[in-house]
């Protein structure tokens, strides 16, 4: 029983890490209806910028602040030079633009900061602690707390600030929102800036876990089934989706892997996501599209 519990808790904590990446997707989708393919590249860019400053001798806080400024500046540049020209274009066109952006961001990251692998030490000892009969990672607990704080802050921001309410209006009906004076470019800059902040948090935690290297872009593969389950428009849904995916893939790896003769966690996450898609196409917490016909 303790082995089952340990596997389950390990999976849940891993799921929180997936949620961190998924939240970045949700933010941009929620505000603009764009599936931002470049979110993984933003995670890489943020972590690489931070670790490059640290290796150049910068202290933790200044490096963090400068990286945040770089991410916000990047968000403004993306809005000014890519998205503004595409206002009114189809969702597919915007998606393709983010696909192109992902390659540009990856290329710029490697061009200016190199392709080397970096260690990222956040000063958190990753020594396991015993909770009853099971071992729990301190680092994973801190990541879970960070994700929780992020979800609460973003929920407050979206529900109780003027900007947040404007963002929801844009998401519901961009044309109607603009007709009452809400400026789409300004809101896009804000939401891409916040997505940059989320990418920075995800980049730091994933980078500390696996090293800062190009494969950070691959963490988005873990976020996709999370989004399908939680819904593309719900920040809380991203957390619930992450927990479900983390726990199910971890348990499947242990209890189904041997039966099926190989690793199952990657595709099992998508099996779970597909099952949810069939039952609830908008995800557990996603907005259902209602159209007058």
């Amino acid at each position: 029983m303790s082995f089952f519990l340990e596997t389950l808790v390990g999976g849940l904590l891993a799921g929180v890490m997936y949620s961190l990446v998924a939240i970045g997707f949700v933010l941009i989708y929620k505000a603009s209806g764009i599936f931002n393919f470049a979110q993984g590249s933003m995670v890489l860019f943020a972590a690489l910028a931070f670790v490059t400053l640290r290796e150049a001798g910068w202290d933790f806080v200044p490096a963090l602040l400068v990286t945040l400024v770089v991410m916000v500046a990047g968000a403004i540049a993306i809005e000014r030079f890519v998205l503004r020209a595409l206002i009114g274009q189809s969702d597919l066109t915007l998606f393709m633009a983010t696909l192109g952006l992902s390659f540009v961001i990856e290329g710029l990251a490697q061009l200016f900061m190199g392709a080397s692998v970096h260690e990222l030490n956040l000063g958190i000892d990753d020594i396991p602690i015993e909770v009853g009969p099971i071992l729990v990672s301190q680092f994973d607990l801190l990541a879970a707390a960070t994700a929780g704080a992020l979800v609460i802050s973003l929920s407050l921001f979206f529900n109780f600030t003027r900007i947040g309410i404007s963002l929801r209006a844009i998401a519901d009906d961009p044309l109607a929102a603009q007709s009452i004076g809400i400026r789409l470019p300004t809101l896009w800059r804000i939401v891409w800036g916040v997505a940059g902040l989320v990418a920075l948090v995800a980049g730091l935690l994933w980078g500390a876990r696996q090293g800062v290297q190009f494969s950070l872009t691959l963490v988005v593969l873990k976020a996709l089934p999370v989004l399908i389950i939680g819904g593309f428009t719900s920040i809380g849904g991203a957390i619930v989706g992450g927990l479900l995916i983390g726990a199910s893939e971890s348990l499947a790896e242990i209890y189904l892997g041997d039966l099926l003769g190989g690793s199952v966690s990657t595709w099992f996450a998508y099996v779970v996501a597909l099952a949810f898609l069939l039952i609830r196409p908008a995800g557990l917490f996603g907005d259902r599209a209602i159209e007058r016909v």
């Binding site: 596997t7 890490m17 290297q213 494969s215 893939e249 790896e253 242990i254 892997g257």
Partner: peptide
């Protein structure tokens, strides 16, 4: 371990359960 191998808590939980004397790690990349 499925590619790319950036999450291995299940595999190492199994190691903890089976208690091998040595682990031969055949990885790639991350």
């Amino acid at each position: 371990v499925p590619h790319p191998g950036n999450e291995q808590s299940a595999q190492w939980a199994k190691i903890r359960q089976l208690k091998p004397d040595y682990v031969f790690l055949r990885g790639w990349g991350v």
